[in-house]
Write a protein that binds this DNA or RNA. Structure first.
Lengths: 127, 127
DNA sequence: CGGGATCCTGTGCGATACTG
DNA sequence: CAGTATCGCACAGGATCCCG
């Protein structure tokens, strides 16, 4: 919204109905990107295998795919060291760091997770 | 981070590596939920068909699925009016409204969308 | 070590048809 | 009107093998 309540968001003068935050969601919250960015933020620059071990349930192929996407979007920086054995390091870019307040808002909302749990229990326990 | 910069988030005393905001992402940013919540927030309580027309590209089946999920998670309230023809209305719950600051943070980040665009262009234009 | 190439499977979603 | 039921496919992602 532009000026009324000050809450939620500026409604872009969008064509018809499309929610204006959808593009951001597509970029930042596509599958696996959250744990990857989190790991890079939490533990700093690190190698491919390190990331792979931290996330643990991700396969190398998918990790590569997502890292490529994040690199293309400018959220992650890839550094290739032409050595033997080869070494590749990933780190969060400046743009990626700008997501910090957003992730903070996310983690603040997790205080509501138990409310979600109770809502689910209530929903499941009915005719 | 636990206390150094104060940015981003409190690391829940998680088992090992799992990023603490992943559960929130799963609940709030699963497919279609963003436009649905947006439409409900922006235009208030409304009927199924109204939602269907606003989102336009969603099919009734998927809209039903996602609304059920949002209802189960307590983010949306469904009201059934036993009339002929039947009438069903959906609205954002109190819990759903608590997402407002989060969505605000999202929309604020969209100022960086052009940086993403440029990063992509730069990435695509290389050997 | 850091992937690319290939094959295979689960399932999200669209399309269509039917009901209270 | 507000869904449910059924079929079918495309595609994300797992498993495996291989290479610089």
């Amino acid at each position: 919204m532009t000026e009324d309540t000050g809450k939620w968001a500026p409604r872009g003068g969008d064509p018809e109905n499309a929610c204006p935050i959808a593009p951001v969601v597509d970029i930042v919250f596509s599958r696996w990107t959250t744990p990857i960015l989190w790991a890079l933020h939490e533990y700093g620059r690190q190698r491919f295998v390190a990331l792979e071990r931290r996330i643990a349930t991700i396969t190398p192929k998918v990790l590569t795919q997502r890292l490529r996407q994040l690199e293309r979007d400018g959220l992650v920086v890839r550094t290739y060291h032409p050595e033997v054995p080869p070494r590749v390091e990933y780190e969060i870019s400046e743009l990626g760091r700008s997501l910090a307040p957003l992730f903070a808002a996310l983690s603040e909302w997790s205080v509501h997770l138990d409310e979600v749990e109770r809502a689910r229990a209530a929903y499941d326990a009915r005719p």
